[in-house]
Every structure is written in C-alpha cells, then in structure tokens.
C-alpha cells in the first residue's frame, strides 16, 4: 500500500483512537470505577467485541452515512475525518457530551457543500431524528429494565454476596454486548467516510470465507479503537464512572444494557431484515452517540426513582451538542478542503 494512502487514513484512525479512549467508558466505566471489574479484563473484552461488532455488523450504519454524502476521493475523506476529530476534541475540552456521530455528519455535509454535491434531505432527516430518539429510547428501556430488576431482586431474595457475583458477571456480559454494539454502530463514524474511496480490495480464504475491502477497512479502524481503549480509557473510566450520577453496580448494569440495546437496534441489519420480512416498519441504521445513550439511560433510572437529583442542564448540553458539533465539523471541513485543494494540490472530490 502506498504511504500516502496510509497517511490519508491516519485521521480516521485517530478518530478511532479517540472513540476507544472516550466511549469504552460508557460501556465499562461504572464497572471499572466501582472496582467490580478489573480494567485489564474490561479492556480485553471491550477491544475484542468492538472489533467483532465492527467487522460483522458495521456495514449497516456506514451505508446510511454513505447515502448522506459519498466522499469519493481519499484526501476528501481524510479531511472529513480530521475535522470530525477536531470538533470532538473542541467539544470535549468544553465539557459537553460530544458525539463522533454528530461530528462526522457535519463533516460530510461540509464536503457536500464544498464539492457541490446535494445533501439528501431524506437521509439527513432520518439521521437527525435518530439522534433525538436515541437518548429517549435509552431512557425508556432503562426505566423498564430497572423496574423489572428491582422487582426481581425483591422477590428472588438472593444473598448480598450472591447478588454481587451475579452483578459482576452481568456487567461483563453487558459490557461485551455493549462493546459489540458500539463497534457495529460507531465504526461508521470512524471509517464510513473512507468506504467510497476504500484502498483495500476483497480477498477470500480458500474460497470459503470472503473478507471484503470494507471489512478490512473496518478491522483496521476497530483495531485503533482497541488501542484507544488500552492506552487512554482507564482514566476516563475512573472519572466518568462516578461523574454523572453515582450509580449502584446494578443500576450501572441497567444503564449499560439499555445503552447497548439502543446502539444495537440502530446497527443491526439482521433485525432490519427480520422486521422488513414481516411487513413491520424498520429501524433506521444510523450511527448514534454512545455517550448520549448512556446519559439517556441514567436519566431513565433517575426518573423511575422519582426524578430527584436529575441535572436538567445535562439535557440542555446534549441538545446544544446536536447543533454545535455538526456546525463546527462542517465549517472545519469546508475550510480544510479548500486548503487541501488549493494549497496542497490534492483532489478532494471526483
């Protein structure tokens, strides 16, 4: 592979690293923060399942991003991913619950504007509706699951130590499911913009297993998410774990499960096919924000417990993020493409 191609992929890989560093905490933050699960165990499970989710189920959400704007030149993809990464960095510095999904959508629209490609309003509406639906759905799921778990624990009369052991295993299983869903749903943010200009080609192993170019691309992105998990997520887990609202390990389990269900729903092509084959309305496959899903899930638990101690400002911050993140990324991408084309003489669109 040419060195320039690898160079152009770096912005996406950096975005993957940042995603691993930040979003692993949504899945394992409370478990590690409350010392229920060791960081090394969490990091290994998280990386393995993120990679599996990305390679096996990553195509659905990436396809939706492709419909929004098919960036067809590698330098263009590079700039889109870079501006998304910068937007994420800026928002994180400002202390807002940022989403790579929102950043990458802004960046794609920036590329559309620059290249004169019309933005598909249908795809855009679908994506934006999903952003709003994501935390609401997570809150809905967590409220129901929490209610059920409280009822179950009350009636099962398990020993405190037994409950603790089950919770530990529950946190590991939920973490694995959460990581899989995170990989499936969010790999589109990291590598989606490179799909059209993908430098990898398909190859098959003994004519049985075909490893598509897209899957290779996603594998590379997912490996960088894994590197982000191992190198940087520990401190995020330890701070984020107890930051939003101090959760008991059981409530944390509920939050992770709800978050993971939502991410899975918005990424599963299998579920989409199943719903479609039964004539039911399908769920759009859209990359959503893992952080906002977790915030929604925690709010759901807080609401079911009587709504005390909810910081409504957090909701305001999410709504702000829906607007500001894509705008920053869009502006950055537009300006960046201009420089890339006119100063560095690169073809940013075909």
């Amino acid at each position: 592979m040419e060195i320039t191609i690898l160079l152009f992929l770096t912005s996406g890989l950096f975005l993957g690293w940042a995603l691993g560093a930040n979003d692993a905490a949504n899945v394992f933050g409370t478990a590690v923060g409350s010392r229920m699960v060791k960081f090394t165990t969490a990091a290994i499970i998280c990386s393995v399942f993120v990679i599996l989710g990305a390679v096996v189920s990553g195509a659905g959400a990436a396809h939706t991003l492709g419909k929004l704007g098919a960036i067809n030149a590698l330098p263009g993809s590079f700039m889109a991913a870079l501006s998304a990464a910068v937007a994420v960095y800026t928002m994180t510095k400002a202390g807002l619950p940022v989403s790579t999904s929102q950043a990458i959508v802004g960046a794609i629209i920036g590329w559309n504007l620059f290249s004169g490609t019309p933005t598909d309003p249908k795809a855009l509406t679908k994506i934006m509706t999903t952003w709003v639906a994501c935390p609401i759905l997570a809150a809905f799921f967590s409220a129901i699951i929490y209610k059920f778990i409280v009822w179950f624990i009350r009636n099962a009369k398990l020993h405190l130590l037994r409950t603790d052991a089950y919770t530990r295993i529950g946190l590991l299983v939920a973490g694995a499911f959460g990581s899989y869903s995170l990989g499936a749903n969010n790999i589109a943010n990291v590598m989606g913009v490179f799909v059209e200009s993908n430098p990898f080609t398909d190859f098959s192993v003994a004519n049985i297993l075909t490893f598509t170019g897209g899957q290779q691309l996603f594998l590379l992105g997912a490996i960088f998410i894994g590197i982000g998990v191992f190198t940087y997520s520990k401190r995020v887990m330890l701070t984020v774990g107890n930051d939003l609202l101090p959760l008991s390990p059981i409530a944390a389990w509920v939050a992770v499960v709800s978050h993971s269900i939502v991410l899975f729903l918005f990424a599963s092509q299998g579920l989409e096919a199943l719903l479609a084959s039964n004539g039911l309305p399908t769920i759009p496959l859209v990359p959503v924000s893992s952080s906002q899903a977790v915030v929604g899930a925690v709010l759901g638990i807080a609401l079911i417990k009587g709504g005390r101690g909810i910081q409504w400002r957090v909701l305001g911050n999410i709504a702000t993020g829906w607007v500001i993140t894509p705008v920053i990324a869009c502006g950055m991408c537009f300006v960046g493409l201009y420089f890339l084309q006119n100063v560095f003489d690169q073809t940013v669109f075909n």
Partner: peptide, 21 residues
C-alpha cells in the same frame, strides 16, 4: 479462563455465605 474465574467466584461466594451464617 474467565469461566474458570467465574466458577471460582461462585464457590468462594458460597463459602463466605456459609461463614457469615
């Protein structure tokens, strides 16, 4: 490996439950 750990976790848990009783 993790499964083995989990099995041990349940055995230790049961022993501790008995000791508390």
């Amino acid at each position: 490996m993790q499964l083995g750990k989990d099995v041990r976790l349940f055995r230790r848990t049961r022993e501790l439950e008995i000791q508390i009783d």
